[in-house]
Nucleic acid binder design. Structure first.
Ligand SMILES: [Zn+2]
Ligand SMILES: [Zn+2]
Ligand SMILES: [Zn+2]
Ligand SMILES: [Zn+2]
Lengths: 130, 130
DNA sequence: CAAGATATGTAATGTAATAACATATCTGAC
DNA sequence: GTCAGATATGTTATTACATTACATATCTTG
């Protein structure tokens, strides 16, 4: 069910750039990295990002207008994902928390709200940057 | 301590537009609303939004690149704020939840992360839009 | 092979946010 | 009152982020 298909050429290129990045990259930063490989237009990157995001191999960080490779070893289920973003070094840590998830589910249920997607991003300073 | 100063002319204009809006507005939508009052440039709106956001009279919705008037009757303390955003009607509900807040504080403490700002936005369908 | 689906290439445009600089208004010290 | 610093405003240009529209190529599958 819902197998992740093999990546296409552009998807692979974008994925490899994000996998090697130490912090989130904007679509235009990714494009610049890939000009040597022949990419020229933002849309080539955005299309790849759309697919990668759909398959949850990549996540969009809304508060940065940027993208990170998923750091989950295993596949994502339907669970909520959160991010801790260091404002000093730029590093992002991805995490899941069942308590947060169930608390949000409870709020939604109480308020007759049907959630489809949750954005949870904490900005601050990571352990290495105190 | 930290009194909210009286609003300037442009801040008042922007605040009044947001207060009457039924859903979040982009800076450019606000600008269009205020052209009749003489505003002409995005920066006039962005500057007002910066101050209003600083005083927490307005919140930025990161996932929409848009802004809403704060719906808290009382003043904000340092607490975390969350938003439930209806993808059908556009309405946004602002809420606080101590459980979410303490759980995020716990995660941060466990991971030696010093948080400064949290973005929590749930997209979905509100009670009126099932 | 033919037909439909998926992926790619390219140009142009739309939308969001900031930089740089000039001018005006407010506020307190003298 | 007036001078000086701080705050607010006005204006133009530019940068950053994202999508529309259309043409072409490649990959399925009957
Ligand atoms: Zn992930
Ligand atoms: Zn750090
Ligand atoms: Zn509020
Ligand atoms: Zn609704």
């Amino acid at each position: 069910m819902n197998e992740t298909p093999a990546l296409t050429k552009n998807q692979s290129l974008v994925m490899s750039v994000l996998s090697e990045a130490k912090s989130p990259l904007s679509a235009y930063q990714i494009l610049d990295e890939l000009r040597p490989e022949g990419l020229r237009a933002p849309l080539q990157v955005y299309r790849a990002l759309d697919k990668l995001t759909e398959h949850k191999l990549v996540h969009r960080i809304e508060s940065l207008n940027a993208f990170v490779a998923c750091s989950h070893a295993a596949e994502h289920g339907g669970e909520m994902v959160a991010f801790a973003i260091c404002e000093a070094c730029g590093r992002v840590e991805e995490f899941c928390d069942p308590v947060l998830q169930s608390r949000l589910a409870a709020w939604s249920h109480e308020h007759d709200f049907i959630p489809t997607r949750t954005t949870l991003e904490i900005k601050g300073r990571c352990a290495a940057c105190h």
